[in-house]
Design a protein around this nucleic acid. Structure first.
Lengths: 133, 133
DNA sequence: CCCAAATCTACAGTTGACGTAAAATGAATA
DNA sequence: TATTCATTTTACGTCAACTGTAGATTTGGG
C-alpha cells in the first residue's frame, strides 16, 4: 500500500493555486497535510487535491471560505461515519442542490437576456448597413 | 417631458443596495447622478436603476466591478451609436454569452456530482438502517 | 559534505466591497 | 421665517481573501 504522497510544489501545480494559498487554507482548517513528526516539509495525500478542487467549485457557488470549512468534510466523509452524521450530510447536500438549481435558473435568464440584446444589436447593425448604401 | 428624477433613498430601496454602495459605484464610474451644480444631494434618472440591476446580474456572473465598468455602458448605448461601436458591442456580448454557457456547464457538472453524492449517501443510509434491525 | 532549489515561518501589504458615525442638507411644520 | 428632523454626504473604518517577502531551514543530488 504505497499511499502516494506529494510535496506542496506538486500539489500547487496540479491544483493551480499558490503555496501561500495552500498554507492559508490549512490555517483555516480546509485542508491538512499528513502528520509530520519527522519531516519539516508538508506531505499531502492525493485526496487533498480533490479537496482543493471542491473548494474552488464551492467558491464559484458563492460560498465563503468559512462556509466551506463547515461543509467540506461532508464530501470526504468515510462511509463508516455514524448514521446521524450521514443524515445531516444528506440534508446539507440537498440544500446545496437547491442553491445550484437556483443559480442555473438565474444564469439561464441572463443568457436569454443576452441573446435578446445580441439580436437587437444585430438588427440595428443591419439597419445601419442599409442606410450606408 | 418630465424626466422623473429620484433621490438616492428611492434608488437604493428599489435596487436593494445601500447608499454606500451607490456612492462606491459612482466612484468607480459605474453610474452617475445628473449634473448637480446647484443641489448637493444627488438625483438619478430611472435608467440608473436598470444599471444597478445589470450590475448585480454581472456580478453574479463572477465579474469584478472593474470588469463591469468596462462593459456596462454597452448595455445602455443609444441605438444611434456609431456603427463601429455597435460591432464591438456585439463582439463583447457574444464573449459574455460564451462565459455564461461555460458557467452553466460547470454548474451542471457540479449538480450531477451533488446528485451522485446524495444518492451514494442515501444508499449508505439505507444499509445502516438494515444493519440496525 | 556541500550547494542549489524547494519549503517554512511570520509578519506586513493589498484589493474589493462595502459599513458606520458625524457633519451637512433640505423639506415639512410650527 | 425659524425650527426640526429625516436624508444625504463625506471621510474614515472594516472584513475577507488573498499575496508579498525576507530570512531561516530543509532536502535531494553531485
Amino acid at each position: 500500500m504505497t499511499t502516494q504522497l506529494m510535496k506542496i510544489g506538486e500539489l500547487t501545480e496540479r491544483a493551480g493555486v499558490s503555496s501561500r494559498t495552500v498554507h492559508y487554507y490549512e490555517n483555516l482548517g480546509l485542508i491538512s497535510p499528513v502528520q509530520r513528526d519527522g519531516p519539516k516539509h508538508r506531505l499531502y495525500e492525493p485526496e487533498v487535491l480533490q479537496r482543493l478542487q471542491k473548494i474552488a467549485a464551492l467558491k464559484k457557488l458563492g460560498l465563503s471560505l468559512e462556509d466551506i470549512a463547515g461543509v467540506i468534510d461532508l464530501y470526504f466523509q468515510s462511509d463508516a461515519a455514524p448514521l446521524s452524521g450521514k443524515i445531516k450530510v444528506i440534508e446539507i447536500l440537498k440544500g446545496q442542490l437547491e442553491n445550484v438549481d437556483k443559480q442555473i435558473d438565474e444564469l439561464s435568464a441572463f443568457r436569454s437576456d443576452l441573446i435578446k440584446n445580441i439580436s437587437h444589436m444585430e438588427r440595428l447593425y443591419g439597419e445601419a448597413l442599409m442606410q450606408k448604401s
